[in-house]
């Protein structure tokens, strides 16, 4: 079984893991079948506001155990272990964490049969359970991991290789070659896509420095290269260096030049609440180049450790090599302080499966203090 990133051991999730939490209460909402992220965020906040006692008032709460597995999520009373709630995993629509609050949204049943009118939408009654825990984010990540493991299992049972889902979709764009790097799989996994709400003072910048994802990137958009210490973005705790910024307040940044992405971030300066759509990515990406023989062309050019051009559809591009990225490692050996000639030598000799770790050169310059970040 392929490992799915998250806080839990894969095997443990099959059997079920337990987290302690305080149950604050439940409420119901009516929702369409697959609402957009902004609607889901409003729903989660609405559920929290309805259940949470106002500041200064006593909050009724019950100690519970949350049982999470790839089959179900159960809420058990902490003392008697009696099941208060039990939801099959496929009926859970989404999980949200807001600070120390966790909101679980489960679909109950069709609230209204679809009307014959063309524009009618199926409506669902959602039951929303609200919990408090210092580990709200961790629990949300564990439930997200259970979603992902269950989904992969579902694909496998349907005769689809989960690792091939992304590769099959990519055929039109890159020809019949296979993609070896995990980018597509990573980008198409909804677990990695997040909607983050950042609260800030009016006139205050978000406190992010942006760079380009690099020519050849499967998701051409701005990448977070640095976070201003103490700035709204860092304070939110939800962003990290390497994350792709795909939209701001619902406006897509994908495919736009860096200057346009920066302008879009500057534009929200006057607002007090900003919604960012991000795809969480590590700052360093790994490209895997399958090169059966050392005589086969690698398909990219390097200048002082930085990739400066790429052969479209070549083995390097398919493996995840991106223009404008600095090579950090080749087959596990750091090359950050290696002379250009030696890097070329290492690349020329490397064959069979070449693992190359890279990061945007601009991010590297910021992280190593060679350049001062311009925070937006």
């Amino acid at each position: 079984l392929q490992e799915v990133p998250g806080p839990c051991d894969h095997e443990d999730l099959l059997d079920g893991v337990i987290f302690g939490a305080k149950y604050l209460g439940s409420t119901q909402l009516v929702s369409e079948r697959n609402p957009p992220p902004s609607t889901r965020m409003a729903q989660a906040r609405e559920a929290m506001d309805r259940v949470k006692a106002p500041e200064g008032e006593t909050q009724p709460m019950t100690e519970v155990d949350l049982f999470v597995s790839t089959k179900r999520v159960k809420v058990l009373t902490a003392d008697s272990q009696e099941a208060m709630m039990d939801h099959a995993l496929q009926t859970i629509s989404y999980i949200a964490d807001i600070g120390n609050v966790l909101v679980l949204m489960a679909r109950r049943r069709l609230a209204r049969r679809p009307a014959p009118q063309a524009h009618s939408r199926q409506l669902y009654r959602m039951i929303c359970h609200v919990f408090h825990s210092e580990d709200a984010q961790l629990i949300a990540q564990a439930i997200g991991q259970a979603f992902s493991v269950a989904y992969r299992q579902f694909l496998r049972e349907s005769g689809i290789d989960p690792s091939q889902v992304g590769a099959q979709q990519s055929l039109g764009a890159t020809g019949p070659g296979h993609l070896h790097n995990g980018d597509l799989d990573h980008f198409s996994n909804s677990e990695n896509c997040r909607e983050v709400c950042i609260e800030k003072r009016r006139g205050e910048g978000l406190g992010v420095a942006l760079v380009e994802s690099g020519w050849g990137s499967l998701l051409p958009t701005a990448v977070i290269a640095n976070l201003l210490h103490g700035g709204p973005a860092e304070r939110s705790g939800a962003l990290s260096i390497g994350d792709r910024l795909t939209a701001i307040n619902g406006t897509s940044l994908v495919g736009l030049p860096l200057a346009a992405c920066q302008a879009a971030v500057r534009e929200v300066k006057s607002q007090t609440l900003v919604t960012l759509s991000i795809i969480h990515c590590p700052p360093v990406t790994t490209a895997i180049i399958r090169r059966p023989h050392a005589r086969e062309q690698l398909g990219f050019c390097v200048e002082d450790g930085i990739i400066c051009s790429l052969l479209r559809g070549g083995i390097a591009e398919r493996g995840g090599v991106r223009v404008g990225h600095r090579i950090i490692e080749i087959n596990g050996h750091s090359v950050v302080a290696t002379p250009h000639a030696r890097i070329i030598e290492l690349l020329t000799e490397a064959h069979v499966e070449v693992h190359i770790k890279t990061m945007p050169a601009a991010t590297y310059r910021l992280l190593t203090g060679q350049e001062q970040p311009v925070y937006l």
């Binding site: 496929q90 009926t91 964490d97 679909r107 896509c193």
Partner: peptide
Amino acid sequence: SALTITVNPMEKHEEPGHGEE
């Protein structure tokens, strides 16, 4: 505070109308 949402990919595959009651 920051709000993070993780959508269940199984949501799209569930039969319409099916759910817990």
